[in-house]
Amino acid sequence: MSDQYRVCIVGCGRMGGTIDEEVKGSKHRSLPYSHAAGYTAYPQTTVVAAADVFEEKAQYVCSKWNIPKYYLDYREMIEKEKPEIISIATRPGNHAEITGFAAEHGVKGIYCDKPLCASMEEADTMYDVCVRHNVKFNLGTQRRFSPGYLKMREIIESGEIGDRRSVIAYSGGSALWGYTHAADMLLFLAGDSDVDYVQGDVDVDDNDFEDNRTESDPPIVMGYIQFRNGTRGISIPGSAYEFEVDCSDGIVRSLNNGLGFQLRKRHGQFNEILDTDFPDYEHKSGTVGCIADIVEAIDIDRETEGNIRLARISTEITLGIVDSQRQKGARVYIPMGNRSLYLGRW
């Protein structure tokens, strides 16, 4: 156990250190939000350096968060600074490369911003290297570390509203950049179950699949996930990132991107599903929760809550839905065979 963990940040863009300026004053109570802000707020982490290929970005983030050193090459930074934890806040094209280098150079924990990567080949590489080196890994899908969503899952797992039947995501967006959040929450609210198969409808020109690599990050319109524990996952177009879990004796739902939560239970003379008070919970930053989870996992050598196995599953949900579109809407059984399918040009 360490009183202080040395941290290095790779990527000094929006999520690396500037998004807090955008969301300041938001009703979502998500601050601290960026990686740099989260580490600054958490008492057991100290950011010792940051790296970016654009010097002005590195300089700005280091100045804003009082980070003493910046580098233009993340490899040099890791070799010289010897951090216990790194953040990866770059675009997904080099996440596998950075993860491998960090794991092989003694890094104990990795906080990787979403999306995980752009193909299942890359996801497999990241999984293998993290398992081999016992790296405590979290993907930056912070809802699973946010107290309101944790309370949702607590209600479901307690059996208070009966047996879980389906999980619905009212959200959409591009596969990697947006749907990553939906896939992770569907997985989280389904109890982090393994997946049997997926199907989907994706807004992409079929000709874009000719070289097994799409030119863009295609929008997912609808998705279906058959979880191994029997839960059915469904995503449909929505505008507020809302998630609903339907159980045999009630329904629990997040509202307006987590601004509120709704609980309905079966009761009364006619067994109606009626509104019930959602339990109180403490509002905390999901970013800080993600960081705290990595630190505790290193301290006591346990698995993290958003670990590389779960990150690979949610990524395979997303890529499997896109591959379903490539196969004219066919079921894609997991593990999917087309592991070289690559989304976007990063």
Rank of each mutant, 00 (worst) to 15 (best):
A330H: 10
S314F: 09
I313T: 07
R302V: 10
I317L: 05
T315K: 00
I313K: 04
I298P: 04
G306T: 02
I298K: 02
D293G: 12
E316Y: 01
I321M: 05
I313Y: 03
S324Q: 07
A311W: 10
N307L: 09
G306N: 04
I300G: 14
E305F: 08
R312V: 06
A297K: 05
V295Y: 00
L310K: 14
I308Y: 08
R302Y: 10
K328L: 13
N307D: 11
T315Y: 01
Q325V: 05
I300F: 14
I334A: 03
I317D: 01
E303C: 13
A330L: 09
I300C: 15
E316A: 03
E305A: 09
V322N: 07
G306A: 06
S314Q: 13
R302I: 10
A330V: 08
I313P: 00
I298T: 05
I298H: 03
Y333F: 15
Q327T: 01
E296F: 09
D299V: 11
E296C: 12
A292K: 15
R326C: 03
V322H: 06
K328T: 11
L310C: 12
A311M: 13
A297C: 12
Q325W: 06
Q327I: 00
V295M: 00
L310Q: 14
R309H: 14
V332G: 03
I317Y: 03
R312Q: 12
G329K: 04
A311K: 12
Y333I: 10
T318C: 07
L310V: 13
G306F: 01
S324C: 08
I291Q: 06
R309F: 13
L319A: 07
A292E: 15
T318G: 05
A297M: 11
E296S: 13
L319T: 06
V295I: 02
I317R: 03
T304Q: 02
V295A: 00
I300N: 15
I294K: 09
I321V: 08
R326F: 06
R331Y: 11
E296M: 10
Q325D: 12
I321Q: 01
